[in-house]
Design a binder for these strands. Structure first.
Lengths: 122, 122
DNA sequence: TTCCATACCCACAAAAAGGTTAGTACTGCC
DNA sequence: GGCAGTACTAACCTTTTTGTGGGTATGGAA
């Protein structure tokens, strides 16, 4: 069996996650959609740095990967609402870990020694 | 914490984390270095898909950001060992969450004791 | 009629990320 | 001398990602 040499290549879950939520914007979008519904224009206002094209493009990818739900009201002027799917809500603990890591990384060395692997459960 | 009108821009922890461990390779390298010391050639063998240039480049960034420790033995032929710093070990829960997310995304939430059927993606 | 607002699309350009190939320095081995 | 092994550098190139500036459709308001 493969014992010593565990190559990272085959179906690595880290890579899977990277493919799903990697890049500059996806996690920020998913974070803003956490437990609420937003329209495109609202997302644009909340994340002003993202270009409209990027926002639309990333939302489409997230919809295609099943993390975001898109509800089109078919009205004029257009009205479309975005929200997280059940799978999309699964990124929440990941985002929480990222926040936690960033805070620990930024000069809170005192608390380094006291937490081996604090996990936030719900 | 997350309020209605919180813009994502100013010193967002998600962005901080993205800057530190974002990209295609950093998390894979950090994962391999978890609680062990590896030389460049060993990392190269474990992650065969990464080019040597990328590996060196990413390692340098990780050293600069204080996540990885570099020990140069000053010998000839060169011998350099890489390991995680205390801050570097902090990414472990993050990686664990990514693994967890990937598994949940792929629909293994309820079939823990079952043999999952081969899924061909990637 | 003209304009507005919304959620898009498209062509193109710039920037970032990643990859390829070559070469360096040093020592010990044959 | 010629070559192998190791951790790197540097020049150059390709691919991917991100950004810019335009345009579309529709119905109602002005």
């Amino acid at each position: 069996m493969e014992n010593d040499k565990i190559y990272v290549t085959p179906r690595c879950p880290i890579r899977t996650t990277l493919e799903l939520v990697g890049g500059k914007w996806k996690l920020l979008i998913l974070h803003q959609l956490h437990s609420r519904t937003l329209r495109l224009s609202e997302l644009k206002a909340i994340i002003p740095e993202i270009s409209e094209k990027m926002l639309i493009q990333e939302l489409k990818i997230l919809v295609d990967s099943g993390l975001v739900h898109r509800k089109n009201y078919g009205e004029v002027p257009p009205k479309v609402e975005y929200s997280l799917t059940a799978k999309g809500e699964l990124v929440q603990p990941l985002i929480a870990e990222m926040k936690n890591f960033a805070h620990l990384y930024e000069g809170r060395s005192e608390e380094l020694s006291q937490l081996p692997s604090q996990r936030s459960d719900k």
